[in-house]
């Protein structure tokens, strides 16, 4: 229940442990349910983490279950030696930063315009929302984007998918409900144009929604592998996820490309190398996932609030 206990206790005398048996059973069931759910969510994450720092032999034998065994950072050393991985990591950072800035700025501009009345706004709204229900699809998009010169072009990683209808609507709703119209009237009396008003007032007052949009756009970009799969051919331009895919989601896992560098050095004991490759996979998962999760955790404060504001009307 959302209201403070004290208030409810005063009103109904239910705060003195005089809950009905039914409610008490319900509360117990509910607590147990959440302990189980939190366990199910956390355990796989924890397991990946402890596998990444354990002794490869023990990981391979399935002995690492609750706590790391034989702490070692061998796996991390191995993946840090992989030039391909580092290169793609850097690419992903560039794509994510520039893509996020581009996406958030474009979305805020559009959302600002849509939060004001202007002639033809209904038509523009329809024009935008229609794309939610009918789209060209992968192949026609590919042909058009190739004609636009985005094939094998790093710009594809920044531009494609920069604006989503959903984010546009969330941002518009936020501006409409959180920035009073009187503020614009006052600014206009002082002679402020839409441009001035947008940069002076709207952007500074939209911190929460821009945080939300940044997390959406940033995480989407960081985690995207499909765009690169379709558009990027040059191996030096590949983002992290595409490189990870080659290493992780394959059946021929024994010769993981991640540690081929180290394989060349001590390439005698194949079995040991296989086990090491397995741990290196866990390490690469940790290294690639931590930035997205950290971004979420840091932004989390604004986040839940902003998402709720946006979604209420959506």
């Amino acid at each position: 229940m959302r209201r403070p206990m004290s208030q409810s206790a005063l009103r109904h005398g239910s705060g003195y442990g005089r809950k009905t048996t039914g409610d008490r059973v319900f509360d117990i069931f509910n607590s147990v349910f959440w302990v189980v759910v939190v366990g199910i969510v956390i355990y796989p994450l924890w397991l990946v983490l402890i596998d990444s720092v354990s002794n490869p032999g023990d990981v391979y034998a399935g002995r690492v279950v609750i706590w790391p065994i034989g702490f070692s950072l061998e796996g991390y050393k191995a993946i840090l030696a992989s030039k391909q991985l580092l290169r793609s990591y850097l690419n992903s950072i560039i794509y994510t930063l520039s893509g996020t800035v581009f996406s958030v700025f474009l979305t805020m501009m559009g959302a600002y315009a849509l939060s004001h009345p202007f002639p033809g706004k209904g038509a523009v709204n329809f024009f935008i929302i229609f794309t939610m229900f009918f789209s060209g699809g992968l192949i026609p998009s590919f042909i058009i984007n190739r004609a636009l010169g985005l094939y094998n072009n790093p710009l594809a990683m920044i531009v494609l998918g920069a604006v989503s209808v959903w984010n546009l609507m969330i941002a518009r709703t936020y501006i409409q409900t959180n920035i009073p119209g009187e503020l614009y009237d006052a600014a206009a009396i002082d002679g402020a144009s839409h441009f001035k008003y947008f940069f002076r007032f709207v952007l500074p007052l939209s911190g929460v929604i821009m945080a939300v949009l940044s997390v959406y756009a940033g995480v989407a970009r960081w985690n995207d592998y499909f765009t690169a799969l379709v558009y990027i051919r040059d191996r030096n331009l590949l983002p992290l996820q595409t490189v990870l895919r080659e290493a992780l989601a394959s059946l021929t896992s024994s010769a993981a490309s991640l540690i081929e560098d180290s394989l060349k050095i001590d390439g005698i004991d194949v079995q040991a190398a296989t086990r090491k490759a397995e741990v290196a996979k866990y390490c690469s998962i940790v290294v690639s996932t931590v930035p997205a999760v950290l971004l979420y955790v840091f932004m989390q404060k604004f986040f839940v609030k902003g998402v709720m504001i946006g979604s209420l009307k959506g």
Binding site: W222, Y225, T242, L244, L248, A249, S253, K281, I285, T289
Partner: peptide, 13 residues
């Protein structure tokens, strides 16, 4: 916030 690639990778592992 975990990527699909990692999710499927974890399934394989």
């Amino acid at each position: 916030f975990i990527s699909t690639v990692v999710m499927v990778g974890v399934l394989f592992l």
